[in-house]
């Protein structure tokens, strides 16, 4: 868990995101595929601007009244999926 939360991540160059009614839909130009994010994944995506996963957890824990461990698990799972899908990449400049 710690490994992925320690990484700084940014949106991949081939990802095109559109926010509709508060939720993001991501188009992946490389794979010609679409991913529709739910509320919590959209909140995490919005923070993927080069900060680390842990910083994202801090930000969400500050705004939402949820157990920090639960937030960490959510962030880890969402980041893992977005990275596996190629929509997020490690920020080599910021890390």
């Amino acid at each position: 868990m710690a490994q992925i939360l320690d990484r700084a991540m940014v949106v991949a160059r081939g990802a095109v995101a559109r926010e509709i009614d508060g939720n993001f839909t991501i188009y992946d130009k490389e794979n010609d595929s679409v991913m529709v994010l739910n509320d919590s994944a959209s909140a995490i995506w919005r923070l993927c601007d080069g900060r680390t996963g842990s910083a994202i957890v801090d930000e969400l824990a500050h705004h939402y009244e949820a157990n920090r461990n639960e937030i960490e698990r959510d962030v880890e799972a969402v980041l893992e999926r977005l990275m596996t899908s190629g929509l997020l990449v490690r920020d080599v400049v910021g890390s």
Partner: peptide
């Protein structure tokens, strides 16, 4: 949610391959 129709609309588009990002 409106976003749920996006994959279906893209999947069913006849002519998205010319410029997929613009189509999206």
């Amino acid at each position: 949610p409106s976003s749920q129709v996006i994959p279906e609309l893209l999947e069913r588009s006849f002519n998205r391959h010319g410029d997929p990002a613009a189509t999206f």
